[in-house]
Structure formats: C-alpha cells, structure tokens
Amino acid sequence: MDFLGNVTAALPAYWTPLWVTIGATVGGSLFALLVAFALGLMAGSRFLLLRGVARTVIEFFRGTSLVVQLFWFVVVLPLALQIRFDAVIVIAILALGMNYGAYAAEVVRGAIAAVPPGQLEACTALSFTYWQKMRLVVIPQAWPEMIPPLSTLAILLLKGSSLVSLVSLADLTFQAQVLGRRPDQEMLFHLGLILVVYFILSYLIATGMRFLERRAKRGLGQEPPKKSALARPVPVEVQSAAAAAVER
C-alpha cells in the first residue's frame, strides 16, 4: 500500500467539495443576514403582531436542532412545493440561513435597542421617517456592534455547514469520508486534512469580519480595536439577553 501516493492522488477530488462548503457557508450567511435584519427589525417593532410573529419564528428555529431542521427541510420542501427537489444545496442554504438567521436576529435587535435614546430623539427633532431613522442613523451605529457576534455566528455556520454531509450533499466532510472509507491511516489523514481546511476557513472569516469591524468603527470616527483575528467567542444568546436587559 502506497500511502503517500494514494493520498496525493486523492487531493484533486477535494476541489469541488471545497466549493460546496464555501458556497453553503457564503450563501447561508447572506441568507441568514437577510433573515436576521427582517426578523430583528420586526422583533424591535412597536406593533405587537410583528413582534409576535418574529418572536415565534426566532424561538422556533433556535429551539429545534439544526440537524433536525436540515432533515426536515429535505423531507418537507419537496412535499410542500409538489416537486422532485434535487438541489440539496438550496435546502442547505435555506436551513443554515433560517437557523443562524434566527440567532443573528437577536443580535440585530439587541444592537438596535442599544443605540442611545438621544439619537432617536434627535431623529424625531429632525422629522425623519421610520425608514430614514433606521437607514441613516440607527443601523449605521448599530452595525459595528453587531459584527463581533455575527462573526462568531458565521464561524458557527461554517462548522454547521458540515452537517449537510448528513443529507448526502458532497461537501468537504462528505468527501473526506468517501475517500477514507475504512478506519485506517488514510481516513485519518483525510479527516485531519479537512480539519485544517476548516480551521483556515474559520480564520479567513474572522479576519474578514475584523476588517469589516475596523472599517465600520472608522465610519464612526472611533479607534479600531487591535486584537488577533481569532478572538474570544461572543456567546450569542447571552449577548442578546444582556442587550434586552439594558433595553428595559
């Protein structure tokens, strides 16, 4: 058995799965951001109905497991849409986006609630409409505060994307197990290799988000933070609960 020859020959087979992982992560993150702003604005609304709808959706997707949601989407979406549904990547993006979007919605709501009330009063004094207030003043100020917890969530989403292998989407995790097959040295190599790849992807996300944060903070005339790229994780649920407490 030529170990080195085998594993080297296998490497090109990772090219497509790498892009499936990146696609699911980027697609899922963008969809999650959309969901987060929609639900987050609704959850901070004056109207009880909007708040109620948002809260229900948020609690539902946070309370049920992502793995279950993924399987559930795979079963239910084709049923609900009355079609044979082969694009598992779309389902993966939907499930990842809804799940992490629900967590991110709390981040969005919390950061918006933390904008000082004086800012809102100034908007009133200048006769801004709700959307002008949000677009011109509130969201630009809340955005830098959102980035660190969103960065934590994006890395969680990257890790969560490995679950799509459970519904037979050929991502990195799936490919490593296909190439490994038996519990031997080769399999261990493949798994170790993709662990390193995931770590590098995490690092890239963290670096990118740090860059965004610096830019956003500069946009507020603040000194950007100087930390290493992979900083401490911000516990997302706790962070939002704290913001809720401040809001009261």
């Binding site: 800012q119 009063e121 100034a122 003043v137 100020q141």
Partner: peptide, 14 residues
C-alpha cells in the same frame, strides 16, 4: 420645530 439637546445627540456615524 427644531431642538438642541443637553447631550447634543449628534450622529456619531456621520
């Protein structure tokens, strides 16, 4: 109507 506040309330993002 315009108002000037005790705490200024300038928009820090602008």
């Amino acid at each position: 109507i315009g108002m000037v506040f005790q705490q200024f309330n300038l928009f820090p993002n602008m």
